[in-house]
Design a protein around this nucleic acid. Structure first.
Length: 525
RNA sequence: GGGCCUAUAGCUCAAUUGGCAGAGCACCGGACUCUUAAUCCGUAGGUUCUAGGUUCGAUUCCUAGUGGGCCCA
């Protein structure tokens, strides 16, 4: 049971005893704050304008100034700060989201005024009146009627310093949202990004699909899965680490262009770039190659920054990302050569790569070093090249051994037709021409199974039904995954994935866990 | 998994070498009919994250744990 603060309980009792319902219903605002700022932005005295009466606004009280027989409130509603104005110092600023209310005792009546005097910061109110401007020029609603709309029952955060604690902000996102406009902006932006992505693929004749989140064989990526149990079927199910193998089954079915935007789950560490559940866009297009996807990706990213930022150079962390096309395209080994003393011919020589690495990393655990060319490329790329890639860069030429689902390159079968897009040193997208040769795919799965038996617990499983699907014939195709959270981070300048996920995964707070009533029981077991 | 940092009032933060636990805002009471972090007067608010230890005395020092942050693997 929740431990309510007795002072607030008393306050509510007194209010009810006085005949005031703290949680009434049915009040309707006629305008949002933003609509009023927009309607009257150029009007010196809105009270002279016909239609400025009978205006109702509603929202959370964020600020209050009380006098004996008058008061000012500023209330927050869903409006966005989009109306261009200038502030008192003459600097450009945006209005919206907040509107001031002016209440006078002789206009709202003694009874209402006494009730309004008892308002706490954080309460919801509904106000009806006319629009006016104060002596200092602030657009306000002067009240004829006012009522409490919903009562706060806890003290409000410090309104000057706000809510800064990173833990509190993500744990109590509901507080973060009403306290911080930057947070509201981030999640409005996230919504626009997702909307843009859907429109982008709809416009290109793609079908949006939903494939299983609970899978019997977790596939499509190399990662540890979450496991759960289905009682009626009495079997283990895995939360998906990727939708890939299901989307490619749809290609076999003749759905030539499909995309899915949905959650993936990976049972791994949490960091500023990793949350156990995260949102992935995957799309697949028959008759396309990975090179076509580079063109499509460029179009997608440029369109996105044009739409959401209106410019192609966007600031991020300590640098600026330039999305002006064409994006650079470079092979993985080429980038390693660029950022190490290694020569191009040494990139096929395991001993040469090992010698360089050991000399440069005296503390390295020699037993854990790679033994194959492909694994060396992966390591050297991650340690020497990745963190140099600020502007969008298509990294190509991946080794086949670290790409078990990608089509081999026709000229160099040790490589695959694959790219990853890097931005701001992060992997943002991963794409390849799809492996549609069932026999090769079966062999690649077996190599993964061997790796797993050799101790690689992130290696893939053998999915026989997926091989069976391929035996029916999958059209030549290419597919891509884009991490939506990281994309939103880039576009909002967020340094942590937790800033772009409304409710990121956190350990439960002890105090709340103690007061919660949760009974885990398995009735069928 | 390893290292470093951190936890004090609802929020933002103080507390000298180890010596009575503090401020601002919020809350409660009062004054004030154009304020912009309003102002003024008064009251109240604490298991100093948890469990041990050292000490006459611990927010402070030590050990372990828990939550969180940063860095590394």
């Amino acid at each position: 049971m929740y431990d309510f603060d007795s002072a607030w309980l008393t306050k509510l009792e007194e209010m009810r005893a006085a005949g005031v319902n703290p949680y009434p219903n049915g009040m309707k605002p006629t305008h949002t704050s933003t609509e009023l700022h927009e309607l009257y932005k150029d009007v010196e005295d809105p009270s002279t304008v016909e239609g400025s009466t009978g205006v109702a606004v509603a929202g959370r009280v964020m600020f209050r100034n009380r006098f004996g027989k008058a008061m000012f409130l500023r209330i927050l509603d869903r409006g966005e700060p989009t109306v261009d104005t200038v502030d008192a110092e003459g600097n450009p600023s945006k209005k919206g989201g907040i509107i001031q209310v002016y209440l006078r005792k002789n206009e709202v009546g003694d009874e209402t005024f006494e009730q309004m005097k008892k308002l706490d910061i954080g309460d919801y109110v509904w106000i009806k009146g006319h629009v006016m401007r104060t002596r200092t020029g602030e657009l306000s609603v002067q009240a004829d009627e006012a009522m409490l709309a919903s009562k706060i029952m806890t003290t409000f955060p410090d309104r000057w310093h706000g809510l800064n604690d990173v833990e509190l902000r993500s744990r109590q996102r509901y507080v973060d949202l009403f306290m911080n406009e930057a947070t509201r902006r981030t999640f409005r932006m996230r919504s626009k990004v997702v909307r843009y992505l859907r429109d982008f693929f709809e416009d290109r004749d793609y079908i949006e699909v939903e494939t299983p989140m609970m899978q019997t064989i977790p596939g499509g990526a190399t990662a540890r899965p979450f496991v759960t149990h289905h009682n009626a079927l009495d079997m283990e199910l895995y939360l998906r680490i990727a939708p890939e193998l299901y989307l490619k089954r749809l290609l076999v079915g003749g759905m030539e262009r499909v995309f899915e935007i949905n959650r993936n789950f990976r049972n791994e560490g949490i960091s500023v770039r990793h949350n156990p559940e995260f949102t992935m866009l995957e799309f697949y297009q028959a008759w396309a190659t990975y090179e076509d996807l580079m063109d499509i990706t460029e179009e997608l990213f440029v369109g996105l920054v044009d739409k959401l930022h209106g410019q192609r150079k966007i600031p991020f962390a300590d640098f600026e990302i330039d999305f002006t096309p064409p994006f650079r395209r470079a092979d993985m080994d080429e980038l390693v050569v660029e950022h190490t003393p290694l020569q191009p011919e040494q990139m096929r020589d395991v001993n040469a790569m090992r010698a360089f690495y050991v000399a440069d990393n005296p503390g390295a655990d020699l037993d854990k070093l790679p033994t194959t060319v492909g694994k060396w490329w992966e390591l050297l790329f991650e340690e020497y090249a990745e963190h140099k890639l600020i502007n969008p860069t298509f990294v190509t030429g991946f080794p086949a051994e670290i790409s078990p689902l990608a089509r081999r390159n026709d000229e160099d079968p040790e490589r695959v037709d694959r790219f990853e897009l890097f931005c701001a040193t992060w992997e943002i997208a991963n794409a390849f021409s799809e492996l549609n040769d069932p026999v090769d795919q079966a062999a690649r799965f077996m190599a993964q199974v061997d790796a797993r038996e050799g101790g690689d617990d992130e290696a893939m499983y053998f999915d026989a039904d997926y091989i069976r699907a391929l035996t029916y014939g999958m059209p030549p195709a290419a597919g891509q995954g884009i991490g939506v959270d990281r994309l939103v981070m880039l576009l909002t300048g967020s340094q942590s994935i937790r800033e772009v996920i409304l409710f990121p995964t956190l350990r439960p707070e002890r105090k709340m866990a103690e007061q919660s009533v949760v009974e885990f029981e398995n009735k069928d077991a």
